[in-house]
Design a protein around this nucleic acid. Structure first.
Lengths: 320, 320
DNA sequence: TTGTATGCGTTATCAA
DNA sequence: TTGATAACGCATACAA
């Protein structure tokens, strides 16, 4: 691997001069500067981050941590994060749980964005620090160096359910997501609060367990069809499960929305294809904003508030 | 930040002794070892990864490099890579182009898997090394430390086109992908070779440029409809473009496959939804195998051959 | 069994 | 305008 020392030798100057050129100091003669830059270009010199941050004690690396490979919108979040960070001169590394623990320390990286349920609060509390701020998504942690960026699920789910009630629906079914997920909790809370506010009863029997996968929605819907007691509308905690449910209904020769209406949450790629009525969450923007919040924490200019991403109803045609 | 030196001072020993304790060498007295470990524990000492790998030049980290956020199957590839690596005790970091160049060096990582057209061959040749092997996907680089894992596009595309010919199709259209992509090149080569072998003419006018995005397929199909000269079947270099084309045809009130048949390549998530006839590529397995090849190169047990992932025809209903 | 000295790639200080 | 050198945190060869 070629280093500053090699460049110095080739250019016939000292290492300090090369360092000065590379870091844009002005105390270098024009000719020397050009010669050095020329050589760097030719040999494709890349500064070694190790040496650099060993010296400075600072890095520009941000860790993004996730572990669920089933939800394709994660790529959009990553893209948002990546875009903001590269616009601001930070490097991004994406890791899954175990590796993240190695890299989330302030002599290696400058901060982290965490979207992984397996990364527990205790661990986060132990590494978060004024020198190592963290942004968590879909979770709230009580620590002044950990900031939350969450989706504003509650109001939009209220809006969705209220609209369904206004359309005349009275018998609701619900498929929930992973219980530890804040998204799940808020969505279901909004769902049941809205029914309660309208004096519409919701039997626990009409709650079906899911885990945000299409498979789990499919299974839940099969159980529903077997019960011989279809609700008028099935509200699902996300799109994957809604789509799984729709597939199951179609296989059992029920028409959506003829026999049963279905709603989702996310506006995932496939939602449009299925004409699914759902809630659109701006994923790219979430990532971008999470990165922005983190960088502001690093710079000491962040506000303390939880950052809420707002979502919007998307009416399509799986609701009568 | 507390370092080995501080521990040494507190324990009243030298830094090398502390280093020896931490790295489990046996040349340390029992008492000393216990005292040092005790102190490390108390103060929460964490070794500085920078200093460590700057010195030792060895790590267990593998870099995976990609940059296209539009193709959701990338998540499957990442999952495959992640699974193999974690089963084998390696850490994975995923990076986009610019950051990758920082991390792809043999004192930080142990090897890399590259799936990014923006990472040029010159750069790869300059970093690849016996001590830093690289696996490239969808590309062939002539370097004994760079191994290719590619999809066996040719034979399956021949099979697809031959089947279409056997069904009686004679007028073909084609939407190509990014020209620099090996996938694109092989698929088109197979397409035109098969037509030639069957003495079926293919006019260059029926070739449409695309870049693997749905958008580009949509545009190409709109151009086709305006030409008033629909081919009998439109072969697309991937699913995204095929789906874009199908949308365009439907908007122009052409029926698929009534007025025109369409085929894709990838078996992306949405392909099933659209009932698209396509070619299924095992993405998870590709990632898993790419990681396996890399680890074997690291261990010095890899074969020199290009690794080919085989793909399979998937007949659905966008072909008459 | 423990300590001293050196070097990894870089930046910063200071002298030339 | 340039160069020599120390220092960052750690591992290691070698001396004690």
């Amino acid at each position: 691997m070629i280093g500053i020392k090699d460049i110095a030798k080739m250019a016939g100057v000292s290492v300090s001069t090369v360092s000065n050129v590379i870091n844009g100091r002005k105390n270098v003669g024009k000719e020397t500067r050009e010669r050095v830059l020329q050589i760097c270009e030719e040999v494709g010199y890349q500064p070694n981050l190790m040496g650099k941050s060993l010296k400075s004690g600072k890095t520009n690396t941000i860790v993004f941590n996730f572990s669920d490979f089933e939800r394709s919108f994660y790529l959009k979040i990553i893209k948002g994060i990546n875009d903001y960070l590269s616009e601001n001169g930070f490097d991004l590394i994406v890791c899954t749980t175990s590796s993240s623990k190695n890299f989330m320390r302030n002599n290696f990286s400058r901060g982290a964005i965490v979207l992984d349920k397996k990364m527990d609060n205790d661990f986060l509390n132990s590494v978060a620090d004024e020198q190592f701020p963290i942004v968590v998504m879909d979770r709230i942690v009580d620590n002044e160096n950990i900031k939350s960026v969450i989706v504003e699920n509650y109001t939009v789910m209220c809006e969705l359910v209220q609209s369904l009630i206004n359309k005349g629906f009275r018998e609701f079914g619900y498929i929930g997501g992973i219980e530890s997920s804040l998204d799940h909790q808020e969505r279901f809370q909004a769902f049941s609060d809205t029914l309660k506010n309208n004096n519409i009863p919701f039997q626990r029997a009409n709650y079906y367990f899911g885990d945000f996968t299409e498979e789990s929605g499919y299974r839940a819907a099969n159980i529903i069809t077997l019960s011989n007691n279809l609700p008028e509308v099935l509200v699902c905690a996300n799109d994957n499960m809604a789509i799984g449910a729709i597939k199951a209904f179609k296989e059992s020769n029920y028409s959506v929305p003829g026999d049963i209406s279905v709603t989702g949450f996310d506006d995932a790629g496939a939602a449009e294809t299925y004409g699914l009525t759902t809630v659109a969450i701006p994923r790219y923007e979430s990532g971008y904003l999470a990165a922005k919040e983190l960088v502001e924490m690093i710079r000491g200019t962040a506000s303390k508030d939880i950052f809420k991403i707002s979502a919007k109803m998307k009416w399509r045609n799986t609701v009568k």
